[in-house]
């Protein structure tokens, strides 16, 4: 269900996405459709195996859908992948960095791949290090970072090239409260600067604090979507978490 009428221009439109993996018994995505307006922080919520990571992978050009299409800022992600990739940023669930390189070296390398160079690259690297509070530890190798520092440098790499649309796949999983608070604050700062975000998380309080709109999905489909407060009110729930359990059940998903 899409059911959304954005007054603002769309940052992303995914229509009828179906993904069947080679060894999959059932579709990982089964008619997944969303529209995300520019400037939104769109929360994608769901239990394990709901299809969140598959959806993010397809929307960020990493995976080809079996069916359906995605446009980002009106560009088809398949036909104009190069242009799309230059506009999007990705903060994956794993710390996708070179652990034997320092934080600064990682930023410089990925910045170079985004086409930054010279003084512009140096300035942007320092800016990003400041943004995530890692400048004093910038020359330490990533493998020596704490979990929170790794998550912060992971975020810094994702925003190096000032993406218009940022995909964040559980960017705060398994870290301390201070680092999580800092990351959420920084994401709100980025959003104020105009960055649209697609955010997956298992932490409902994060979604309530951060997201302008959320979609709860399960079995590869969107079950409900809307502004968190409206959804809670509409369902008569006490919180987003209660609504989440009501929609997806309390049984374990391993």
């Amino acid at each position: 269900m899409t059911g959304n009428n954005h007054a603002r221009p769309l940052a992303l439109r995914a229509s009828g996405l179906v993904k069947i993996y080679r060894d999959g018994e059932k579709p990982a995505l089964d008619g997944f459709s969303v529209e995300i307006g520019e400037g939104d922080i769109f929360g994608l919520l769901g239990p394990n195996g709901a299809g969140k990571t598959t959806a993010i992978s397809i929307m960020s050009t990493l995976l080809r859908p079996t069916e359906g299409e995605v446009t980002i800022f009106n560009r088809d992600t398949r036909r104009r992948a190069g242009e799309v990739k230059a506009m999007i940023g990705l903060v994956p669930q794993e710390i996708a960095l070179y652990r034997q390189l320092s934080g600064r070296e990682n930023l410089r390398y990925f910045g170079r791949l985004y086409g930054l160079r010279g003084s512009a690259l140096s300035a942007r690297v320092e800016e990003c290090l400041d943004f995530v509070g890692l400048r004093p530890k910038a020359d330490q190798r990533v493998h020596a970072y704490s979990g929170g520092m790794k998550r912060r440098i992971n975020l810094a790499v994702g925003i190096l090239h000032r993406p218009k649309l940022l995909f964040l796949d559980e960017p705060t999983v398994g870290i301390d409260a201070q680092s999580r608070d800092m990351i959420l604050a920084r994401l709100l700062d980025l959003n104020k600067q105009g960055t649209t975000m697609v955010y997956t998380t298992h932490y409902m309080e994060e979604a309530e604090r951060l997201c302008s709109e959320v979609a709860v999905m399960d079995d590869g489909r969107v079950l409900v979507r809307g502004k968190p407060a409206e959804l809670i009110k509409k369902g008569g729930h006490a919180s987003l978490q209660e609504m989440f359990f009501a929609l997806t059940g309390r049984e374990l998903r391993d």
Partner: peptide, 11 residues
């Protein structure tokens, strides 16, 4: 370590 995934998301 999924660095490959990050690399493939880049232009």
């Amino acid at each position: 370590e999924e660095t490959l995934m990050r690399l493939r998301s880049m232009p």
